[in-house]
Computed example of a mutant assay.
Amino acid sequence: MATAKPQGPASYFPSIEAKYGRTVDDWFTAMTAAGITGHKDLVNWLKTEHEMGHGHATALAQFHLNPGKWEC
């Protein structure tokens, strides 16, 4: 039986983990610790503080702020 592919932001998670060397759970912990609650501010923080690309930063921020919206 085939496993369903992740949808939405979660589809970026394997490449995020491979490129930046941290698990997505580590990124979610870091975003929570940063205390940033707005999407745009989280994206900018990931881009400036962690040199993350825009697409990857957006995927993490979207999922972090709306974890129940997409299945992993």
Rank of each mutant, 00 (worst) to 15 (best):
Y12P: 00
A33N: 06
F28E: 07
I16K: 04
F28D: 09
E17G: 06
S15K: 15
P67Q: 12
M52G: 03
A4Y: 07
V43A: 01
Y12E: 08
H54T: 14
G53Q: 09
H39T: 06
T23S: 15
T37Y: 00
G8Y: 06
A4T: 11
Q62P: 02
K19M: 13
L60W: 08
E17R: 07
M31H: 04
A10E: 06
V24T: 15
Y12M: 10
A30V: 05
G53F: 00
F13M: 11
P67M: 12
L42G: 02
T3M: 08
Y12I: 03
A10M: 02
W27T: 13
L65R: 11
D26F: 01
C72E: 08
K5I: 11
D41V: 10
R22C: 05
A57Y: 00
Y20H: 10
F28Q: 06
E51T: 11
M52P: 01
G38R: 11
H39P: 00
F28N: 13
H64G: 09
K40I: 11
K47T: 07
Y20N: 10
A61I: 06
T58M: 08
T29S: 13
H64V: 04
T32W: 00
G68N: 15
G21D: 07
A57K: 02
P67A: 13
I16F: 03
T29I: 10
A57F: 00
G38E: 13
N44A: 15
H54I: 11
L46S: 00
A18C: 03
A18W: 02
L46G: 04
T29R: 13
N44S: 15
V43C: 00
H54M: 10
L60E: 09
N66H: 15
T29W: 01
G21H: 12
S11T: 03
K5S: 14
K19G: 12
G38S: 14
